[in-house]
């Protein structure tokens, strides 16, 4: 199977539609949830994914914990530190996820920093993702030019959608370039901040959301950073296709534990 994919991936990838593409076609606003693998407990990963899907979440970002998460605020930093203390590693995460497609059908995206992927071996990593049924990757510190030069062919060979970020400071020209390079959705960072830094959206976000909507990008946008409740979820998805909740979900897990996930999702979708 891999051998065939290796040689004719470009044809096949247009035939086999990635779960992300299918999901983006659905006529609804998408709720996506980020959590850190290995947190609160090492073996919560599969249970969290199943519970999120069973409660109507559309897409999941599984965070690969990193020792030095530059773009993350205190909440995700703390969950990453704890996950690493619990013993999470890249291999272990793959091990935990190996049968995930027997029970879960929504898109799964791995999100993390580039160094652990580099150490695992980029091609090996992508191959493993494909075997498991991972649909995409978000690696915030893998820049566009390096991706295009060194890794795009590998990602595509294994059917992985790579998701790029834009921010309110990203120029229109750069957004166009990113739109051109993307094949899935664009991760719209809501404001100039690390994760978990703010509550509520003001005028500047409204302007930014409007500006992006008017650009008529070929890829739909999913908003992330600063979404914490049903109000911010609705604001974020007025124009965008969906929104991602991270820090608020992790805080919830810390306070309420995995069995209460149903309440969290209900709170957002109310």
């Amino acid at each position: 199977m891999t051998a065939i994919l290796g040689t004719t991936y470009s044809i096949l990838s247009t035939i086999i539609m990635n779960r992300i593409h299918q999901k983006l076609r659905e006529d609804k606003k998408l709720l996506s949830i980020y959590f850190t693998a290995g947190y609160p407990s090492l073996n919560d990963t599969v249970k969290i994914i199943q519970d999120l899907e069973n409660n109507g979440v559309d897409m999941i970002e599984i965070g690969l914990p990193f020792s030095d998460p530059l773009a993350d605020g205190p909440t995700i930093q703390a969950s990453s530190t704890q996950a690493l203390k619990n013993g999470m590693t890249t291999s272990l995460l793959f091990q935990q996820l190996k049968d995930i497609r027997k029970s879960v059908s929504i898109p799964l995206i791995l999100m993390g920093y580039f160094n652990p992927v580099l150490q695992y071996g980029v091609e090996e990593f992508c191959k493993k993702c494909q075997e498991i049924g991972i649909d995409g990757l978000i690696l915030p510190d893998l820049p566009l030019d390096v991706y295009q030069e060194d890794y795009e062919a590998i990602f595509k060979k294994y059917g992985l959608v790579n998701v790029f970020l834009i921010t309110p400071q990203t120029s229109d020209a750069r957004i166009r370039e990113i739109d051109e390079a993307s094949d899935g959705f664009i991760y719209m960072v809501s404001s100039a901040s690390v994760t978990g830094s703010q509550d509520g959206f003001g005028n500047s976000q409204e302007t930014y959301f409007g500006r992006i909507a008017e650009m008529n990008l070929k890829n739909p946008q999913v908003v992330g950073f600063g979404i914490s409740n049903s109000e911010t979820f609705q604001q974020a998805t007025k124009q965008a296709k969906g929104a991602i909740i991270g820090s608020a979900f992790i805080k919830f897990l810390t306070q309420n534990g995995v069995p209460k996930i149903v309440d969290f999702v209900k709170g957002i979708r109310k």
């Binding site: 990193f66 020792s67 030095d68 530059l70 690493l84 590693t89 890249t90 291999s91 920093y113 580039f114 160094n115 652990p116 992927v117 580099l118 150490q119 695992y120 510190d141």
Partner: peptide, 22 residues
Amino acid sequence: GKMGIIHGCKTLLMQTPDGQIT
């Protein structure tokens, strides 16, 4: 150290086999 990425730069750095900076 081994080749890796720290603070936005590809260089030699001390890390675990799993790519966590030590």
